[in-house]
Deep mutational scan, measured.
Amino acid sequence: TGIVNVSSSLNVRSSASTSSKVIGSLSGNTKVTIVGEEGAFYKIEYKGSHGYVAAEYI
């Protein structure tokens, strides 16, 4: 489990890349469940599926 540490919002992406499609966003202080790690990204549970967020902001 981690907490989103941004002042505005954090993009949730379809894969572990900044060039991948943005599938949603999370606001600051949102609690997320981390299920894996790929490079600089965490794989998280997101809306019944999975998404990827930049690990530096969690």
Rank of each mutant, 00 (worst) to 15 (best):
L26R: 01
A40G: 14
V32W: 03
V35F: 07
G28M: 12
Y52W: 12
V53H: 00
A16F: 04
T18S: 13
G36A: 10
S15V: 06
Y42L: 09
G28Y: 14
I3C: 13
S14R: 11
A40M: 11
I58Q: 02
Y46F: 13
V35I: 14
G28L: 11
G36V: 04
E56M: 13
N5F: 08
V53Q: 00
G51A: 10
I34H: 00
R13K: 06
G48A: 06
V53G: 02
G24L: 03
T18H: 15
G48K: 06
K21M: 12
A40T: 09
V53S: 01
T30L: 06
A54D: 09
G39M: 04
S15A: 13
I58L: 06
E56P: 05
R13A: 04
E37R: 15
G48I: 03
I34T: 00
S20Y: 07
S25V: 15
S8K: 12
K31P: 09
T33P: 03
V12M: 02
A54P: 14
S19R: 11
S17G: 07
K43R: 09
H50I: 14
S49A: 13
R13Y: 15
N29K: 10
N11R: 13
A55T: 10
G39H: 05
I34A: 00
L26T: 02
K31V: 14
N29Q: 11
I34M: 03
Y46A: 00
A55G: 05
A40Y: 08
E38F: 11
F41N: 02
S9F: 14
I3S: 06
Y52I: 00
S49N: 08
T18D: 12
Y57G: 09
E56V: 12
A55Q: 14
T33E: 06
K43A: 05
F41K: 01
S9Q: 11
Y57L: 07
S25L: 13
S9I: 11
K31T: 12
T1S: 10
S17H: 09
N5E: 06
A16C: 06
S9C: 15
T18G: 11
A16N: 04
I23P: 01
N11E: 15
K47C: 14
E37D: 06
T33L: 10
S9H: 12
L10S: 03
V4T: 07
V35K: 05
V32P: 01
I23S: 01
T18P: 14
F41S: 03
E37Y: 14
Y57C: 15
G48D: 08
T30C: 12
T18Q: 12
G24Y: 04
S20V: 04
T30F: 07
S15D: 09
H50G: 04
T30S: 12
I58D: 01
A16Y: 05
E38I: 09
V12F: 02
V12H: 01
V12Q: 00
G48H: 06
G36H: 06
G39A: 06
G48P: 03
F41R: 01
G51H: 02
V4M: 05
G36K: 06
N5W: 10
E56A: 13
K31W: 14
V32G: 02
K31N: 07
N11A: 15
R13P: 00
V32S: 00
G36M: 06
Y42E: 00
E38P: 02
N11D: 15
E45A: 09
V53R: 00
G36Y: 05
N5L: 11
G48Q: 07
I58M: 04
I3M: 08
V53Y: 02
F41L: 03
Y57M: 08
I34K: 01
S17N: 11
H50Q: 06
A54Q: 15
S9D: 08
T18I: 13
K47G: 11
K31L: 13
L26G: 00
E45T: 08
G51Y: 04
H50T: 10
T30M: 10
S9E: 10
T1Y: 15
L10D: 01
E38M: 08
V4D: 03
V22G: 03
A16I: 05
A40D: 12
R13E: 01
N5R: 12
T33A: 07
G28H: 14
G24P: 01
N11W: 13
K43T: 03
E38V: 10
V32Q: 00
S15N: 09
V22N: 04
S7V: 11
G28V: 11
T33I: 14
S27F: 11
S49K: 11
Y57S: 08
T30I: 08
I3F: 14
G48T: 06
G28E: 08
L10H: 03
S15F: 08
Y46T: 00
I23M: 07
V35N: 03
G48F: 06
S27K: 14
Y46P: 00
G24D: 02
S7M: 12
S27W: 11
T1W: 15
S27Q: 13
N29R: 11
T33R: 11
G2A: 07
G51I: 03
I58E: 01
I58Y: 03
V4R: 04
G51T: 01
V53E: 00
I44R: 00
